[in-house]
């Protein structure tokens, strides 16, 4: 398999956690990490996000991060068809190594570069329908849909928790109730869900 990187995962993460865009970014080597508190249904939720390297060389490392994740963002680059073509491989990989209930969202990034678009929005939608994913196009540069992408994922996870799909006592699901023994607390003692959606890539 070829090395596919540069679809903008790190930029998405940076935009979501720091609200800034850095055009020049070193390649992710290993896994980067970010966290942000969000509020869903009046509950404080801490999202821990791992940003994995896209290169094949790091596949073994990143794979270990699938385990214990409650959700994943699968990102492709709308200006590079090859990244879209390999989504299936990544999706299989993710499903195989993770909890079967993991929420997976398909993200078509770089929507600001409309002029260089190679993958139609409809194609993305079709792929998502076919595989039961949620689809969204974002732009890390203009911050369009970035918040929504993360928060929607978090919401899906939250709903699944409410439905009881996730066993919140099983930490392998990547969900932890806010610590009861001091430490970084969530507001008002309300249980917070720590979702951990790693961004996948093709």
């Amino acid at each position: 398999m070829l090395l596919f990187s540069g679809v903008g995962k790190s930029c998405l993460l940076l935009q979501f956690t720091d609200k800034r865009f850095q055009p020049v970014h070193d390649l992710t080597i290993g896994v980067e990490f970010g966290a942000r508190m969000i509020t869903i249904d009046g509950k404080q939720i801490k999202l821990q996000i791992w940003d994995t390297a896209g290169q094949e060389a790091f596949r073994s490392i990143t794979r270990s991060y699938y385990r214990g994740a409650a959700g994943a963002l699968l990102v492709y680059d709308i200006t590079r068809r090859d990244t879209f073509n390999h989504l299936t491989t990544w999706l299989e990989d993710a499903r195989q190594h993770s909890n079967s209930n993991m929420v997976i969202m398909l993200i078509g990034n770089k929507s600001d570069l409309e002029s260089r678009r190679e993958v139609k929005k409809e194609e993305g939608e079709a792929f998502a329908r076919e595989h039961g994913l949620v689809f969204m196009e974002t732009s890390a540069k203009t911050a369009a849909n970035v918040e929504e992408a993360f928060i929607n994922t978090a919401k899906e996870i939250y709903e699944k928790i409410q439905e009881g799909v996730f066993d919140i006592n099983n930490e392998a699901n990547g969900i932890k109730i806010g610590p009861q023994h001091g430490g970084a607390g969530s507001g008002g003692g309300a249980p917070g869900a720590g979702g951990a959606p790693p961004g996948g890539c093709c």
Partner: peptide, 17 residues
Amino acid sequence: DAIYCYTTEGRGPCYAL
């Protein structure tokens, strides 16, 4: 395969080396 980082809450980033 890599250097892994942990906080008291869980895994953090890792550096492939």
